[in-house]
Simulated scan of single mutants.
Amino acid sequence: MKQLEVQIMGQSYLLGCPEGGEQRLLEAVERVDTAMCKIRDAGKVKARDRIAVLAALNLAFDIADRSVATPVQPATNGAAKNGAFADDGRLAGLIDRLDHALGDDGRLL
């Protein structure tokens, strides 16, 4: 496994990467960095962890939008009662995990 040092929102990270996956990892880092900087630069959210959560959600929704070819099914977990839908429940599972991680800070949706 190869290691790459990358910068996300001005902070250095040393990431593991499988051989031959360097370009894909660098592209992913660029997408995450761009998403996080856009949220930070909007000026409404200051905490790095909240910026990361919002960027993750934005990227997850982008991925879900790209998979429109597959019919979207109602989520089968807690997100369904909040009106959220996800392909195979993956997005709903992500939202539930993020809600759990945020704990007392409140629910995302």
Rank of each mutant, 00 (worst) to 15 (best):
P71I: 00
V32F: 12
C17M: 06
A35C: 09
L54F: 08
R31F: 02
L102N: 14
D96P: 05
G78S: 14
G83H: 03
R40M: 13
M9F: 02
V6S: 11
D41H: 12
S12P: 12
N77Y: 12
D41W: 03
A75C: 15
M9A: 15
E30D: 09
I63H: 08
L109R: 07
D33M: 05
I63D: 08
T34Q: 12
A86R: 08
R24G: 10
L98K: 09
Y13A: 13
S67M: 14
G106L: 05
G21S: 13
D99A: 11
G16H: 06
A69M: 07
V45K: 06
G89R: 11
V6W: 04
R50K: 11
R90N: 06
L108E: 08
R24I: 08
S12N: 08
K44Q: 02
D99M: 01
V29Q: 10
A80T: 02
Q11R: 14
L91I: 11
V68T: 06
F61V: 02
L102I: 07
D49K: 10
L15F: 00
A47P: 01
V53C: 09
M36A: 06
V72H: 07
G21K: 15
I8H: 10
A28H: 06
L102S: 14
D87I: 07
G93P: 02
N77E: 10
G43W: 00
G78M: 15
M9N: 15
E5I: 05
C17L: 04
F85C: 04
M9Q: 01
L57C: 09
C17D: 07
A92W: 10
R97T: 11
Q3M: 11
D104Y: 02
R50V: 09
D99E: 11
A80L: 09
L98R: 07
A79I: 01
A35W: 10
S67E: 14
P74T: 12
G10Q: 01
S67T: 14
A84T: 12
G83Q: 02
I95Y: 09
V45F: 07
Y13L: 15
V53H: 01
L15N: 07
F85L: 05
A75R: 04
I63V: 14
D49C: 04
G20F: 14
D65R: 14
V72F: 07
D105L: 12
D87G: 03
N58Y: 06
Y13I: 00
V29E: 01
L25K: 13
V6K: 05
D104A: 15
R50G: 06
D49A: 11
M9V: 13
R107V: 11
V45Q: 09
F85W: 01
K81P: 01
V29F: 00
A42V: 00
D96M: 08
R40Q: 08
I39Q: 04
A60D: 02
A28D: 04
E22T: 08
G16D: 15
D99N: 15
A56H: 07
D65Y: 04
D49H: 04
G43Y: 05
L14R: 05
E30N: 15
A92T: 10
G89T: 11
R48M: 13
T76E: 14
